[in-house]
Design a protein around this nucleic acid. Structure first.
Lengths: 121, 121
DNA sequence: TTTGCTGTATTAAATCGCTTAGTACAGTCA
DNA sequence: TGACTGTACTAAGCGATTTAATACAGCAAA
């Protein structure tokens, strides 16, 4: 369900957090479904429970999951989290477009670079 | 000319490197112009010369600058570096667009989010 | 040549974030 | 009660970043 790559320079807790965020926001994990327990996932991925806990804590702060002490963590109705993520992504998008314009690409070139999977230049 | 923010979680050498890369690729620093010396810039920014040196080394590897031992570092004709950067940015762009599509945004919404500086939803 | 700049290389130490390990406590449910 | 759940805490190791202090070599001008 979630994969962790030790050669990835990003911290493990970020990989876990981003992996679940994607699964949740894309609807693969529907609202209300139960997240694996901290210890269970830690054993499955062979990493420390504290690292999983940190990922879960951030997902909770983002509004992606809702934790109930003693019961577990559950995917929450994530309209707010989805809106937050859309906002982040559009901000990234605008920054990239701005810099590409500064590098001399016009709007048509940028659009074609988005639509076509082919590399430019 | 370059600003460093200690509260930025990114390493200082990355901030320096990215700052100069932007100045060079955008044409603010024209090809052939002299970069500040390692010691001079370190004193100006109040950081260690080794940190500046690391930023310069990476800029040289990217092809943005050309260093001549004993003389200094100079902005190089950076067509290859510009192409590299364009490639990085279009890759970022495509990844963001892909995720936004997965979040339910259609192409028209994405395009308007790029064109208009206003936040959506 | 001497002086003063330039980049480069090296080592040691301090700091910080990430990760692991171990332990402990409290809530939930069969 | 017992077995699970999340949570909290401390201690330690590790690696990257940064600083510090030197040292060496190339270039240019007085």
């Amino acid at each position: 369900m979630i994969q962790v790559n030790v050669r990835d320079p990003r911290p493990i807790y970020e990989q876990v957090r981003d992996g679940f965020r994607r699964l949740i926001l894309s609807g693969v994990l529907p609202a209300g479904s139960k997240m694996p327990s901290v210890r269970e996932l830690a054993a499955e991925l062979a990493i420390n429970p504290n690292t999983i806990q940190r990922a879960y804590r951030e997902l909770e702060l983002e509004g992606c999951i809702c934790t109930v002490p003693g019961r577990g963590s559950f995917v929450s109705a994530s309209d707010a989290a989805a809106a937050l993520r859309r906002r982040e992504l559009t901000d990234e998008l605008r920054a990239a477009v701005k810099e590409l314009r500064a590098l001399g690409m016009n709007e048509a070139e940028i659009l074609s670079a988005i639509r076509e999977g082919t590399g430019n230049d």
